[in-house]
Design a protein around this nucleic acid. Structure first.
Ligand SMILES: [Mn+2]
Ligand SMILES: [Mn+2]
Ligand SMILES: [Zn+2]
Ligand SMILES: [Zn+2]
Lengths: 142, 142
DNA sequence: TACCTAACTGAAAACAAGTTTCATTTATAA
DNA sequence: TTATAAATGAAACTTGTTTTCAGTTAGGTA
């Protein structure tokens, strides 16, 4: 269950953030794109609705939404991608050819985490899990 | 079982790479540091033995060693760390406070991978798994 | 409604990690 | 030795992101 633009706006207000035209524009793009877009790609799209917006503002807004837990971040080499977070903890399956990302939720790492914690003395707070491969469309070609 | 400087040198030669003083210096630092050092940190240390070396050469050497499977790479935000690879597939437990890294080998992700492959049609080639937390030394303080 | 002000914005500069270019040097096979 | 492909390092460049700062604005208050 992914939050709507309305829901996101209300969270912002509730947390004392201002609801500017720029932020609305960013939120709209994020809400209306299923993909995990990199900041630059997102910026391109946001500009269609709000040509005057600066890339900085896009970065700042994404950062804010991420801190509020409203969007998730994918790590792809140097670049980052963002989308609306489906509710709660999830991970990614990334196509190394075209960059498309699929989400999944059940990682079942508790047992492993428990064991590692015991063996190493680390207090484990989280994990990063990503599968890499070729999506259906990219399996044929070079 | 981590390769020795000698072993590494012989692999390089065998693959047709030249064995330069700079490469020797980089290899020595990597071999003699248990930690996963970022390229910049590694560069600092290499300079102690070989002050004239350029950072580029460090990058190039690390890249080469990585391609030959002789060292492993950790992903920490933007920065990368390297050390000698323990033999084969392994993963990392990273302390978000001090950056120390512990290795582990048994990830048991085959079942999950199989299921995801089936569900999404992805041909999965690899994965990235990392646990994040606080090492023993960093659990007390702020 | 008309202010007030902390929050927000965007241009530009700064930054950080990594890569490319290219003239010079060097390891090593012949 | 010598020849030469491989390797080096300085400097310039790229890419993604952050900082700075002077000006603008959302939204609470009188
Ligand atoms: Mn996601
Ligand atoms: Mn390792
Ligand atoms: Zn693909
Ligand atoms: Zn630590």
């Amino acid at each position: 269950m992914r939050p709507s633009a309305k829901k996101i706006a209300s969270v912002l207000r509730q947390k004392g953030h201002k609801l500017t035209a720029q932020r609305r524009a960013v939120i709209n793009v994020v809400v209306n794109s299923g993909e995990h877009l990199a900041p630059a790609a997102l910026y391109e799209r946001v500009r269609r609705a709000h040509p005057a917006i600066g890339l900085v503002t896009v970065y700042r807004t994404l950062e804010m939404l991420h801190e509020l837990g409203l969007i998730c971040r994918v790590h792809r080499g140097e670049k980052h991608g963002y989308t609306l977070a489906p509710s709660g903890h999830h991970h990614h399956l990334v196509c190394t050819e075209c960059g498309i990302v699929a989400d999944f939720t059940d990682c079942d790492l508790e047992v492993l985490q428990q064991r590692l914690s015991q063996q190493t003395g680390f207090k484990i707070e989280g994990h990063l899990l990503q599968f890499l491969g070729y999506c259906r469309d990219c399996q044929g070609g070079t």
